[in-house]
Each structure stands twice: as structure tokens, then as C-alpha cells.
Design a binder for these strands. Structure first.
Length: 426
RNA sequence: GGAGAGGUGGCUGAGUGGCUGAAAGCGGCACCCUGCUAAGGUGUUAUACUCUUACGGGUAUCGGGGGUUCGAAUCCCCCUCUCUCCGCCA
């Protein structure tokens, strides 16, 4: 959520930037609306505070009068107080409504895109920030898509997943299961080596946490909900990992905070269908290793680059063809100011599959999280949050299977062999 | 799931209707002093909102919400979390 004070100071620049997200004049007016509402809020606040101050003063007076036995005078003041109280209550109600309205409007305003975010409304307009430099692998026409390979080598049983749960819940078995475990271990080890603290968080989160990272109230349709207990299955480890820092005030020397964790991720993906959801391309449950950093505002874009490098190094070690996209305004997540997507080439499907998304949220999340730090000057201000996948398993597995298929089985990349314990899947 | 006890500032811990935004101690910070020196002294030390050029005010907050009252950390109700005992259990 943006801060009204920031909107106030930068309104023209913000409006210009929001046009990249396809905001028309009408939607841009919501920025002006926040300022109007905030002004109303302030004047109500001031007036209400004055009334409360008067009430407090009178109450003290009444106490004194009773003590000195002047009950009659005290009772006279009581009447005055009750008048004040009625009017204060009215003002309080009015202020509550204004605040609710302001909150509602703020929820409709996404993060302000960074200068470098390209114009454009669809994924077609994403900028190829870094392309795969050599030829893409060509496996010929006999190459099998990963769901066929998974079947041939008995790695993943989609049918059993359907039987046990439903579609989109694959059951990994044998070498397929081991490959998952190897990748998880590999990614975690790499993250720890890069200075992230490993954590194993809860997989269910409460409403406050879901709100803190912005899954509520706008994206609740994406999460599985345990209504009876008021809990949500996490759609990404971003939620528990970032909420570690909810209501926290860091010291400047605490930066940077780096945490990583592996969790299953649960997504309803309601309304998805077709070839996009075939095999592992889009599932309701998948494993992901997430990296999260809390950064000083001056450093967050450097941190973003550092995270980019880390993720890139993983793909290089896995020997997968990849490219990096800088998302255009229309494709940018609501809460992000700048996002890079990583895609790997899946050689049998001849498709680029998204395996990671790295974003700088600036203060958009920390404002709701109340994640702050105390600066050198003693002032408390909002910190910046960033996160990225490093990496999401399902699609990595898809690409690994497809790209490494040979007549003699599926080869395991060198870096992964110590983790799988086998060189090839036959 | 049942019974009981409790949630106060960075921490420990006082506080049962008004002078308590909150004693005391510890910790932190600043300054001072110094042949008792891994010591001593003095001051300071929450967050948010708001008014003010500034100095400095005001309001709210003692787990959360509601209520009683002129006035609540203190009384009442609901919720939540923690601890102890019982039950259940990987």
C-alpha cells in the first residue's frame, strides 16, 4: 500500500508512471481522491482531539471538585461533558468512515513502476533483458514432452494424484521423487552459501500475515482457505518469510536481512485450463525455494541485481537455457515496482516456462507490514522488501526432463549428481 | 477437548477507579568525573496520529474488541495468545 504522504509529494510523477500500467484519467483520479480524503481525515482528527482534550480536562476538574466536596459544581460540569461526548462520538464515526474510504481507495492503487519498466499492457511487451546467447537446443521431432517422459520412466503419476486429491496434484515417485528432493537440497545449499539464513516456516498463515504481503484482500481467490480456523495455505513462502518482519523495527546495522526457505506452494489457479496446465506447466501444489531480502531503501536496487545474479547462477549450474524478462507495466504484479522473470526453455514443448520472478516492492509491502528501521538520524522509516524464487521446482523438472532426454535415458546435470546419487534416469 | 492461571514499556516487574504514559531495577544513549577503574555521577530513553516556522502542545495506545463511568491498566462481557494440570497424539 502506498503512503498518502508519498502520493502528496510525487503526485505528477506517480500519475505518469501509473500510465504504464494502463491507468486512464479516471483511475488516475483515485490519487487525487486519497489526498482529499486524507485532508478530511486530518481536520476531523484535529477537531476530535480538541474535544477529547476538553473532556479529559473536565474529568480532572470533576475529580478535584468531588474531593473538595463540591458535588453540585461537579454535576454541572458533567452535563457539559455529556454534550461534548455526543459530538465527539459523531466525529469519531465520521472519521472512521473517511478512514475506511481512504483505505479502500488505497487498495486500488498498485505500486509505482520503476523508471526502467517498459510500456505495454501484455506479456508481448515484456522486454527481453537478457537473451539466451547461443542456439536453443533442437531435439528433433521425436522429442517427448515431460509428461510422456514422466510416464515412460515412472517418475510422476498424474493419475494417482487425481485419485488421491484432484488434478494439478502430481504424485512423484522413485527417481522422480528423488530428483525433487535433490533439487530442493541443491537450491537451499546454494542460497545458504550466498548468505541467506535457512528457515522452515509454517505452511498455514493467519489473516494478518496474508494481509501483510498483500494476498488479502485482493488475491484471496488464489489461496486455499481453512475457513473454520481462519487460516490460509501459503501460495508462496514469500508470505511466511516476509511476515517474519511484520511489526519489526530494525537497526540500520541489521541490513541486509536475507532469509530463504523451501515450502510447498498451494494455488487454486481457478479458471485455468488448456495446454498451459498440461503436465507440470501449472499445478496446484509445487515445491519452491524462495529468497527474501529486507533492504535499506538506498540499496534495494543493488540487492535486486544481486538476487538476479544468484538465480542466474543456479540456471547456469543446471545447464538450462534461460532468458530474463523485464516485465512491462501491464504485466507487473500489483505490489511490485520492478520485476524480472526468469524463463527456461523447454525443448520438447518448444516453450519458455517461467521458473522465477524477482521483485522489488520498495515500501509497498513494508507499509502494511509495519516493517521499519531506525536510521542514523534517529528517524523511523519504512524498509524495502524484495523476494524471488530460487527456484520453483515443477517447471524446472519439466525442462530438465525434456532437454536432457537421450536414447539412453535422461541425463542429470553435473552439479546435481552429488544430490541425486545417480547420473542418468533409465 | 476439559480445568485453572496469566498477558503492563527493549527486558524483569510494581500498580484494583482520578495526580500513572505508567514506580523500581536492568539494558540502551548522552555528558561528567576518576588512582576503589570490567567502577562512580547526572540526565535521557515507546509508538502512531495531529497542531505549530520553531520552541512546544494535543489525542490515542498497558494482548484485541465492546461495555459501565464525568473519569479505566485497574470493574463487566466477548475474542485471542501463553503457561500449568488432565485427556488425546506423530
Amino acid at each position: 500500500m502506498l503512503q498518502v504522504s508519498e502520493i502528496r509529494e510525487n503526485i505528477e510523477a506517480y500519475k505518469k508512471a501509473l500510465k504504464k500500467r494502463g491507468f486512464d484519467q479516471e483511475r488516475l483520479q483515485s490519487l487525487d481522491r486519497t489526498i482529499v480524503l486524507d485532508d478530511q481525515r486530518k481536520s476531523l482528527q484535529t477537531s476530535l482531539d480538541q474535544k477529547l482534550a476538553a473532556i479529559n480536562a473536565h474529568s480532572k476538574e470533576i475529580g478535584m471538585l468531588y474531593k473538595s466536596g463540591k458535588a453540585q459544581e461537579a454535576n454541572a460540569i458533567k452535563d457539559q461533558v455529556s454534550v461534548l461526548k455526543t459530538s465527539a462520538a459523531k466525529e469519531e464515526e465520521a472519521m472512521k468512515l473517511v478512514k475506511e474510504e481512504l483505505y479502500k481507495v488505497l487498495l486500488t492503487i498498485p505500486n509505482i513502476p520503476h523508471d526502467s519498466v517498459p510500456d505495454g499492457l501484455t506479456e508481448e511487451d515484456n522486454e527481453v533483458y537478457q537473451d539466451w546467447s547461443s542456439d536453443l537446443p533442437d531435439l528433433g521431432d521425436h522429442a517427448k514432452p515431460h509428461w510422456e517422459l514422466a510416464d515412460v520412466y515412472n517418475l510422476i503419476d498424474f493419475k494417482l494424484g487425481v485419485k488421491i486429491t484432484g488434478s494439478g496434484f502430481p504424485l512423484y515417485r522413485g527417481h522422480g521423487a528423488k530428483l525433487q528432493r535433490a533439487l530442493i537440497q541443491f537450491f537451499l545449499d546454494e542460497a545458504v552459501a550466498a548468505g541467506y539464513e535457512e528457515v522452515m516456516p509454517p505452511l498455514l498463515v493467519n489473516e494478518d500475515s496474508a494481509r501483510g504481503t498483500g494476498q488479502l484482500p485482493d488475491k484471496e481467490g488464489q489461496m486455499y482457505e481453512m475457513e473454520r480456523d481462519g487460516l490460509y495455505l501459503i501460495p508462496t513462502a514469500e508470505v511466511p518469510l516476509t511476515n517474519i518482519y511484520r511489526d519489526v523495527i530494525l537497526k540500520e546495522s541489521d541490513f541486509p536481512q536475507k532469509v530463504t526457505g523451501h515450502t510447498p506452494c498451494f494455488r487454486r489457479e481457478a479458471g485455468s485450463y488448456g495446454s498451459d496446465v498440461k503436465g507440470l506447466n501449472r499445478v496446484h501444489q509445487f515445491e519452491k525455494i524462495e529468497i527474501v531480502q529486507i533492504a535499506h531503501p538506498d540499496k534495494s536496487y543493488d540487492v535486486l541485481q544481486e538476487m538476479l545474479k544468484h538465480i542466474e547462477s543456479l540456471l547456469i549450474k543446471l545447464e538450462l537455457p534461460y532468458r530474463i524478462l523485464r516485465l512491462c507495466g501491464g504485466d507487473l504484479t500489483f505490489t511490485s515496482a520492478l520485476t524480472f522473470d526468469f524463463e527456461v526453455y523447454s525443448a520438447a514443448q518448444k516453450k519458455w516456462l517461467e521458473v522465477s520472478s524477482v521483485s522489488n516492492f520498495l515500501t509497498y509491502q513494508s507499509n502494511r507490514l509495519k516493517l521499519r528501521y531506525k536510521g542514523e538520524n534517529g528517524k523511523t522509516q519504512l524498509a524495502h522488501t524484495l523476494n524471488g524464487s530460487a527456484l520453483a521446482l515443477a517447471r524446472i523438472v519439466a525442462a530438465l526432463l525434456e532437454n536432457n532426454q537421450t536414447a539412453n535415458g535422461i541425463k542429470i546435470p553435473e552439479a546435481l549428481k552429488p544430490y541425486t546419487g545417480f547420473d542418468v534416469i533409465k
